[in-house]
């Protein structure tokens, strides 16, 4: 497998705080790669740097061998980097279908078309239907987003990202606030993605992490603490020590996979 995304010494400094501190990491093409770590470890900041919503203060980011460190977020989106947001970032006054259509019509090249009616964009309606079905919102296309529940918004967030047909999908705590059933459906959704879509996932629910990830990186205080297969990371003493302060995490790390 080749490397799709290569981070080299990537850092983000806010004043005296190093939110992300010299992270060097390669994400394989087609990987299901999880990024874990305690709160404040810099996971979401790192996602922002990869998606281009904030600028690095040091280091380089390369996508498929091309340096994209100085590229804008919209440029990166156009070459196939999609990100979902930790706190849902949607178009609240628009309908569920229109939210997805905005992603789809950018892809089909209709985003700036004045003579194409929004309701009759070729290819867009089909894409909207496909994405709605994928995340389980097929029965609510005309509902305004402001009327959706928190869990439904999380699902829609994923649907909007999928509608951009990404090469690299960045999922920032996708299951936060989802019910157990919704979160189970989400795992199924990620498993059903085409194998050439690379998924990088921030997730606190380690159940989800160990079910999905074929590789795990651990971030702690902005630094990359460990990177390897789930078994390697689980066995890593440094990781266990970093997590010892957190009872829940210790429990999950010290029990075998598959046990509750």
């Amino acid at each position: 497998m080749s490397t799709l995304l290569a981070l080299d010494g990537v850092s983000k400094q806010y004043g005296s705080l190093m939110a992300v501190d010299g992270v060097t990491l390669g994400i394989e093409r087609g990987a299901r790669h999880a990024l874990i770590g305690p709160n404040g470890a810099g996971k979401s900041t790192l996602f922002g740097l990869i998606a281009g919503t904030s600028a690095t203060t040091a280091g380089t980011i390369a996508l498929a061998g091309e340096d994209i460190t100085r590229r804008s977020d919209s440029w990166r989106a156009r070459v196939g980097v999609a990100k979902t947001f930790q706190h849902s970032s949607l178009f609240l006054s628009l309908s569920v279908a229109d939210n997805i259509a905005l992603a789809a019509q950018r892809l089909t090249g209709h985003g700036l078309r004045i003579r194409t009616r929004a309701a009759h964009c070729p290819g867009v309606a089909e894409e909207v239907e496909r994405c709605l079905a994928l995340v389980g919102l097929a029965d609510r296309p005309q509902v305004r987003v402001s009327a959706l529940s928190h869990g439904e918004r999380r699902q829609l967030e994923v649907a909007v990202a999928l509608a951009t047909r990404p090469r690299l999908l960045l999922l920032d705590e996708p299951t936060a606030g989802m019910s157990a059933a919704e979160s189970g459906r989400f795992v199924g959704l990620v498993e059903s993605l085409p194998p050439d879509v690379t998924v990088l996932l921030i997730e606190h629910d380690l159940d989800v992490v160990f079910r999905l990830a074929d590789r795990i990186s651990v971030l702690h205080l902005g630094k990359l603490l460990a990177d390897g297969t789930p078994e390697q990371v689980r066995a890593d003493e440094v990781v266990q020590q970093a997590y010892l302060g957190s009872g829940a995490a210790r429990e999950l790390f010290l029990t075998s996979p598959g046990s509750p």
Binding site: S89, L92, L94, L102, I114, A118
Partner: peptide, 15 residues
């Protein structure tokens, strides 16, 4: 306003 472009414009208004 009702075109695909209009939808993009509403998207920008919202977010």
């Amino acid at each position: 306003s009702r075109s695909a472009f209009g939808r993009s414009l509403r998207g920008i208004r919202d977010n």
